[in-house]
Structure formats: C-alpha cells, structure tokens
Simulated assay, not measured.
Amino acid sequence: MMAEQEFHVDNTIRLAERMVRSESFNHLYDEGMSLVEEAASYLDGEGRAAARRLTRVAATLYAAESMRLTTRLMQVASWLLLQRASRSGEMTPDQVLSEKAKVRLDTDSAPESVAGWDEIPLSYCDIVHRSLRLQARVRQMDDEIYNENVEERPLFSTNPVSDQITLLATAFGNR
C-alpha cells in the first residue's frame, strides 16, 4: 500500500500583493514620495527657522525627531521603490527579497507626552503623524506579502535609541 501524499495548495488571495501589482499602487507610491519631498522641504525651510525659536529641550527633541522622520521616510521610500522595480520587472523576486531585508519599517516616534513636544510646530507634527500612518500601512502590506505567519506587532515598536534620546531630552529639561 502506497503512502498517501498530501499536497497543500495555498489559495489565499493576498490583497496587499494584488494592490502592489495594480494601478492603485501608484497612489500609495505618489503619496509616499510626495511626503518625502514635503518633509525635506519643511526641514530645509520653515522647519529650520522654527527650530531656532525652540527651547533647548524642544530643540533637542526636534533634532531627534527629525532624524527619526527622515529615517522612517527613507525606509518607506526604499520599500516603495523596491515594489515598483519588482512590478516593472527591473528586479527579480529574489533581488527584491535580498534588498528588502535591508529595509526597516519600524522607526517609531517620541511619545507626545515627552517634555518639549508641546512646543513642536503643528505643521511638523502633522508631517510626523502622516509619516507614521504611511509607515504602518506599508508595514502591514509588507507583512501580508512577505511574512505568512506574522504575529500581531504593536503599531510602534520599542527603539532603544529613541528611548535614550527621550531620556536625554528629559535630563536636559530638568537642568
């Protein structure tokens, strides 16, 4: 008697993967790249002027948050560019996976309860919030496309560097 083999066929429809392959991806791509440009323009212009008017605590927080924002947006842009390259056939799936392994989609933000946050300009806070929402959407799509059995992750992960920067900002505020 021959052993019966079981074949598992995955008929799961991955909506995120279909979205990346569809025309609707262009909207997400455009949103991401526009946000990168908007943040760069803000940090180079209006944000630079606003940062000069902040207290030392708020200026430290603003500098740290600017680094996190820039990192977050560059990582999201990298992911979007990889998906576009895959979609257009410029990269093979293996090449995309290899490069995607370098992309981090978990750059968090300082908690809004930290000292100095209330001094940060609202227009900058809006950019930060939109970047966090965009990162969360991209991370959710990434998980659905590339990680089959992903456990639920918190929306914002713990980042030891961020924790240290927050501690430094708090320490400077107590001087």
Rank of each mutant, 00 (worst) to 15 (best):
K100C: 01
V138N: 04
L35E: 03
S66W: 01
F7N: 10
F172N: 08
G89E: 10
E46P: 02
L81T: 14
A3F: 10
E17T: 08
I145S: 07
P121G: 06
E4D: 09
L54S: 06
A64W: 03
R14V: 13
V20W: 07
K102M: 12
L105I: 07
H8D: 14
I13S: 08
V161A: 06
L168Q: 08
R56A: 09
R48W: 08
E152R: 09
S34E: 11
P93T: 07
S86V: 00
R175Y: 03
N174R: 14
D163Y: 03
Y146M: 05
G32L: 02
L54I: 08
A115C: 01
T60M: 13
E38I: 09
L43G: 04
F172D: 02
Q140Y: 09
N149V: 10
E90P: 00
D126P: 00
A16N: 05
F7A: 12
Y146R: 03
Q95D: 12
E144R: 12
S162M: 14
T12V: 14
V114E: 02
T158N: 12
E144L: 14
A171W: 00
L15T: 12
T70N: 05
A136L: 12
L168S: 07
I127D: 00
L168G: 01
L155Q: 09
D108Q: 11
V9Y: 12
S34G: 13
E23P: 03
E4T: 13
L73R: 02
H129I: 00
S41M: 09
M2L: 13
R52F: 10
Q83F: 05
R139F: 04
L134H: 02
L155F: 11
I13L: 14
E151D: 15
S157M: 13
S41N: 13
D126M: 08
D118R: 12
P154Y: 10
E38C: 03
R21N: 13
A169L: 04
